[in-house]
Amino acid sequence: MEPASQVILQCEHLSRSFRRPDGSMYQVLGDVSFSVHENEFLVLFGPGQCGKTTLLKLLAGLDRPDGGTVKMNGQPVAAPAPSRGVVYQTTALFPWMTVMGNVSFGPLAQGLSKEESRRRAQYFIDLVGLHGFENHYPNQLSGGMQQRVGIARAYCSNPQVLLMDEPFGHLDAQTRYMMEEELVRIWQEEKRTVIFVTNNIEEALYLADRLILLTDCPAVIRREYPIRLARPRDYVDPEFLHLRQEISRQMDPAQ
């Protein structure tokens, strides 16, 4: 599917370095520029531990770049805001709150009434398939269910952009396939702009409208791929496998 033409989020020449304990600097993000279109499913794919999470934190406004800017709807991003929801790598649910409490946290923090917050939370809890689990605590749920709550929670503050940082990285393979399928279903039902970080090529190809391949430290954009496979996708479709092979070849630093 063609992404809508309107640019919603824009990064220009982002770079970020950190100081090692011994005082020397190491650069995790080179010079990264890209735009994200409305309702596009963009996957940032790259090997190893380097740069991707940092990049996502810059987009969220949880960290400031050393150089470059992030703009959302033309306005520079200076701090975290409800318009950019985040789904985290490890479950970042509040263990002292029920599923309902976790999901309605966002709307409540934004000043919505209790009834309205609960009503909205209920909609997204149902959407992610957790109807009946509203009063469970996170430690009573499986890993996959916890990430469903994480997705519902991010959706519930009605963000324009959803930032997902390897949300399925800690799940077993079976649950992971199921969650990828679920995420596509949820996203097709409630279209948002999604920026999804992963180091799993299958996952990247299954989800992406567009895939940005990042290099290892310092991360810069190596290539961009529009992924035009029809949804729902098939992991063993010849075209899928072909793309997978090509991108894997690109990742090889010897090339």
């Binding site: 701090a79 975290p80 923090a109």
Partner: peptide, 22 residues
Amino acid sequence: RQVHIWVAQTFGASDLEILFRV
């Protein structure tokens, strides 16, 4: 946990709200 503070921040919670609710 830092990540809980981030969560609250991205939802637009104020410092005082984060103190009391997180």
